[in-house]
Design a protein around this nucleic acid. Structure first.
Lengths: 181, 181
DNA sequence: CGTTTATGTCAACGGTCCTGACATAATTCG
DNA sequence: CGAATTATGTCAGGACCGTTGACATAAACG
């Protein structure tokens, strides 16, 4: 097993006198966790960021493409809810995507005030390319860490979300894809 | 046990015909993982962002304060390595922090070209306030998820980092704090 | 018919990153 | 010693992504 060296469990020699070991180790684990969040997230966004930049887009365009792909036909307000930004911010992201033919915006049938958003074929292709790099990184990490570690990862990430938002977000993350019927 | 409902394990009914279940579930787990990264990181930065905004700072100021606090006496180049940004970007973050008396910049003894950065008492106070909100969120998540989940979280996060960078980053994260001797 | 809702848009601003170019002081090396 | 390198700072300009405020339009609703 060449790829399974230990990733430094943090039970290690304690530095200079720090009074209560339990408290110290707790604070230490929390700091380590925070730093891991920072470094891992930076790595997580690296690959798609590069592809986006080549095409003149930014991270926000990826997020819009992703969640439109996840919920085809989603109205603008729904996307705003998910992304948690203002409509002015979304508009600046959405306009070039529509102009470039990656996203289609059609009036709703039931409520014709709504603009229902879907990816075009080209949009799906581009979104898939973006996600693929990210997915590969995630796949490598999941494979190397193993299923139990992944379960723990998912548990911790879910618990990080605000109590008030968790149910809604997990419903989005774990529900069926909602492809066009 | 009121706080231990299941956080939706993703073995659930598979939607419309998707050919290979193994592949489908794999892609699905990866998508879920990516979305969890997005939502968790957003939650993770929420509390310090609010405090920072009140004081006219941004997330980059928090990062600088954090890593200066972690490595007191770090030279500018060292901080640049950790943060992965350009010196121009760091300068704009560092200048107000020094002017506001949160960070002290003194010439190195051995090499007087270097500027060695440390937190002032006020800087330590402010950094502690910033981290506390984040630490509490992390502590809640870790406590709710349990030690095994936390171990998995750490493993996955470490594996997410580029192979080339992982050792250096983990050395930073897991090494002794390096307080001033 | 008047109000509310969904959306779009114009303007201005702040924060965070970037590249490129140039300056200064200190160290290092031939 | 003098030249090259290193550590840092700074000015100029630009891109992206988020914000608030204000206003407009069309459609739905009561």
């Amino acid at each position: 097993m060449p790829d399974s060296f230990s990733l430094r469990p943090s039970s290690r020699p304690v530095p200079r006198g720090s009074g209560d070991d339990r408290l110290f180790l707790t604070g230490r684990k929390l700091r380590e966790g925070a730093e891991l969040m920072f470094f891992a997230y930076r790595a997580f966004t690296r690959d798609p960021d590069r592809i986006l930049h080549e095409r003149g887009y930014g991270r926000a365009h990826h997020r819009a493409l992703h969640f439109i792909g996840r919920r085809p036909g989603i109205p603008v307000a729904g996307l705003l809810d998910i992304l948690g930004i203002t409509k002015q911010s979304l508009a600046r992201v959405l306009r070039p995507l529509v102009e470039d033919g990656l996203v289609e915006s059609v009036a709703g049938e039931a409520d014709r005030r709504q603009r229902l958003l879907t990816l075009t074929a080209e949009g799906r292709t581009f979104e898939a390319a973006l996600s693929e790099a990210q997915r590969e990184r995630l796949a490598r990490a999941f494979r190397a860490a193993g299923p139990e570690a992944v379960a723990g990862f998912r548990e911790v990430m879910a618990r990080m979300i605000d109590d008030d938002d968790r149910d809604d977000i997990l419903a989005l993350v774990y529900d069926t894809p909602g492809e066009i019927p």
